[in-house]
């Protein structure tokens, strides 16, 4: 036996750490206050919610309505897919410039990363408003909003994936006298391909979710039907739209998960 004493089960925090915890609690409570958190409203909301459910059910299942909503849902998926594909393809060169230690000098990495941060900071619905102003109402504005939002998401994650890639193959190719671009194309990108595919599938899922609400600001898709349904107090139709969105988004998530397993699961 040594004379080492048993360590305390819980470490006593330092004074600085204690102040940090206290500050965190204050900031959280302050946020609740700013968000208008109200116990009274929490208690009174279930009856109102029940009233909405009562008025919304059964959902509107008229064939004419379903056909109209179905076409709008298809347009929504087209917006999501087209925007996501453009965004993912454009993200690769952007990520090459953003990734540290690959092909671009540090100052370019910083500029591109700041740009990507700005893109992510602006919500997709705000991008949709901007593009409605720029190209007019309709699905094209929505597609552009999805594309730019995808670049912000994938550009950042692709760059992080490339920075984290195993440096061994890159070093071996550099040692043959290969140029930086050749090394990235032959070693870095193949090594990060599984991560690229996974991120791209997540981005497409995100695009499908986002595209369902872009119609609220006139950027195409099924969102406009949701807005009209609530504006006209046509809650059954609004509920049909909500259920349709849920079915499509959840189905796409399952499809994406299956594709991810099929493509990446084969990796050893």
């Amino acid at each position: 036996m040594t004379d080492a004493s048993m360590p305390a089960r819980y470490e006593r925090p330092s004074a600085l750490a204690f102040l940090g915890y206290a500050a965190a609690v204050v900031i959280i409570l302050w946020s609740f206050a700013g968000a208008g958190f109200s116990i009274d409203k929490e208690i009174s909301s279930p009856p109102r919610f029940a009233d909405f459910i009562d008025r919304a059910f059964p959902p509107n299942m008229e064939p004419k309505v379903l056909a109209r909503l179905g076409w709008k849902m298809l347009e929504t998926l087209q917006i999501a897919l087209a925007g996501a594909v453009i965004g993912i393809v454009c993200s690769v060169p952007v990520a090459l410039l953003a990734a540290r230690g690959l092909i671009a000098p540090t100052w370019i990495n910083q500029v591109v990363r700041t740009g990507l941060g700005f893109i992510r900071a602006v919500p997709d619905i705000a991008w949709a408003l901007v593009f409605v102003v720029a190209v007019g109402l309709g699905p094209f504005a929505g597609m552009l909003a999805i594309a730019i939002d995808t670049i912000g998401f994938c550009g950042r994650f692709f760059a992080d994936d490339m920075e984290a890639a195993d440096k061994g193959p890159s070093e071996s190719l550099t040692a043959t006298g290969a140029r930086k671009l050749d090394v990235v194309a032959c070693a870095t990108i193949p090594a990060t391909m599984p991560a690229f595919i996974s991120t791209s599938l997540f981005a497409t899922e995100k695009a499908v979710r986002s595209s369902t609400i872009l119609g609220l600001v006139g950027a195409g898709g099924i969102g406009i039907e949701l807005k009209v349904g609530f504006d006209l107090f046509d809650y059954p139709t609004a509920m049909t739209v909500i259920l349709m969105i849920a079915v499509v988004v959840i189905s796409f998530e399952y499809l994406s998960g299956w594709a991810r397993t099929k493509i990446i699961g084969e990796q050893r």
């Binding site: 193959p169 070093e171 550099t174 043959t176 006298g177």
Partner: peptide, 22 residues
């Protein structure tokens, strides 16, 4: 110049460092 020099050299590492998917 470094690339031209390395083109006349070969490196075999501790880990083979092949590109796995190719």
């Amino acid at each position: 110049d470094l690339r031209a020099m390395r083109a006349q050299m070969g490196l075999v590492s501790q880990k083979h460092n092949l590109v796995p998917r190719l």
